[in-house]
Design a protein around this nucleic acid. Structure first.
Length: 454
DNA sequence: ATCGGACTGAC
RNA sequence: CUUGUCAGUCCGAU
């Protein structure tokens, strides 16, 4: 139905080894396409994949397989069927590769656990070569347990898995969530979901009762294979470290990296997650999460910025200036969520200031912006001078921006944002006729409040 | 309201 | 230089 949803870009010129191009497919009639796919599925044999290399933190490169167009259509359709089934059963604090969830949601989850629950010990676990070491027969079993019990479907999936030995296809992100969901549930069952004999009226009351038991208090936050367990003290943290290691080994046949996995006391040291640094600093008599940008990331940003400035110096076209702007806005947009953005970005701007001035003074005018575009006004105050190149103002890294916390909302929608009871949430959604994009927006606000996503 | 182009991040 | 999934942002067109 929707092969158009598969992005093709300019990469449509890969005939021969990768089979049909997106242009070929658009020429086919619907019927021809369907028969083609049916033929392929009869004896499904995934074709070659192109590879993209992605750089990991430690500088190592790992391949990411990109299957040919026809396989992408097939895998996409598998995904569209499997996703809602799996999605409904996944753990709430698993954030990687899931619709409506992002890195920012994961970070917000960690921060609220530090701030609200005062959990300052974090168990960082790094699984050794996770994507390469997934146990296929186990995965098929896990899918079966989740309710996918069509043997033909499972056979196709297992063939796809075999073809993707050292890369991943479209649905391996989804499958990675299937594998690690067992871990999520196992961890959560020991505290969060642990049933008490007495029913409790309020969640606070239940929480207090749980604290009196000798269960290990903990919460897990996961983004794909990158996960943390937050605990209150060092002893429980250590217990978790060993328990999780054993669980992964026995039940999922996965090893952890002993060098990279460790327990961190956030009051003394910082942990890292999704490009951010995290620590728990003193604020009056409390401790709150302070987040910044990872140092190696900062260096990369500086290097990239310099590259962009040089390009702008070489050819000061409006196109390049706009390109530079989208680069800056992109970075801002991601790292805005850090509590220390202002400090981090001011330093970046300071380090780059002379470089930028020297390179741009010959190609642009240094002036107070006159009649700047609305996005410029939104982010930067007008009191400062900036460059003007080919009629556009390049944005600087490190604008001190005020936060827009004031929004006018519908009364019921406001209720929905702060609501924690699942039934009332569902009721409200039905009553107000909330659509997907609306849920997205509401989740943004819920993220800011540190609440669970809908 | 739709549909394109660009950029950022995580994997 | 080329390019997958998810999320976000900017710009443009009708």
């Amino acid at each position: 139905m929707s092969y158009r949803t598969i992005k093709s870009n300019k990469g449509s010129k890969t005939p021969g080894t990768y089979g049909k191009t997106i242009n070929d497919i658009e020429k086919l009639s619907e019927l021809e396409l369907v028969t083609e796919i049916q033929n392929k599925l009869k004896n499904y044999r995934p074709q070659k994949v192109r590879r993209k290399l992605i750089e990991k933190d430690n500088g190592k490169l790992r391949p990411l397989g990109i299957p040919c167009i026809l396989d992408r259509i097939i895998q996409q359709s598998f995904k569209q069927v499997l996703e809602p089934i799996v999605e409904a059963q996944l753990y709430n604090h698993s954030y990687g590769f899931r619709p409506l969830r992002s890195t920012h949601h994961a970070m917000a989850g960690v921060q609220s656990l530090i701030n609200k629950a005062s959990l300052h010990y974090v168990v960082d676990i790094d699984i050794k070569g996770f994507f390469d070491n997934i146990n296929h027969t186990l995965l098929i079993k896990q899918l079966w347990n989740l309710g996918i019990q069509d043997k033909k479907v499972l056979a196709c999936i297992s063939k796809m898995l075999k073809a993707e030995i050292d890369g991943e296809g479209l649905l391996s992100p989804l499958l990675s969530n299937v594998v690690l969901n067992d871990l999520d549930q196992w961890v959560a069952n020991q505290w969060e979901f642990f049933p008490l004999n007495k029913p409790f009226k309020s969640r606070v009351g239940e929480l207090l009762a749980k604290k009196r038991t000798n269960l290990k208090e903990d919460y897990l936050v996961r983004y794909a294979d990158d996960f943390k367990i937050l605990c209150r003290d060092w002893r429980t943290a250590q217990k978790w470290y060993h328990d999780v290691r054993q669980y992964l080994k026995e039940h999922l046949k996965l090893e952890i990296s002993l060098e990279k996995s460790r327990i961190i006391n956030l009051r003394k040291h910082q942990s890292e997650f999704l490009g951010f640094t995290i620590r728990a600093n003193k604020k009056r008599n409390k401790r709150v999460a302070h987040t910044g940008i990872k140092t190696n990331k900062k260096q990369k940003i500086k290097a990239e910025a310099k590259k962009h400035i040089l390009k702008l110096n070489a050819s000061p076209s409006s196109q390049n200036a706009l390109l530079f702007n989208s680069f800056v806005l992109g970075i801002h947009n991601y790292f805005n969520r850090a509590t220390h953005v202002n400090i981090e970005f001011s330093r970046l701007a300071y380090d780059l200031r002379t470089f930028m001035y020297n390179r741009l003074k010959s190609v642009g005018k240094y002036e107070h912006p006159s009649n700047p575009p609305p996005t410029y006004k939104k982010f930067y105050s007008l009191g400062f001078k900036t460059f003007k190149i080919a009629n556009v103002y390049p944005k600087h890294l490190g604008g001190n921006d005020k936060f827009n916390n004031l929004r006018i909302l519908h009364k019921e929608v406001h209720k929905l944002i702060h609501q924690t009871d699942k039934q009332t949430i569902d009721k409200l959604i039905n009553k107000l006729g909330i659509t997907m994009p609306m849920v997205k927006k509401i989740n943004i606000y819920r993220e800011q409040c540190g609440l669970e996503l809908i």
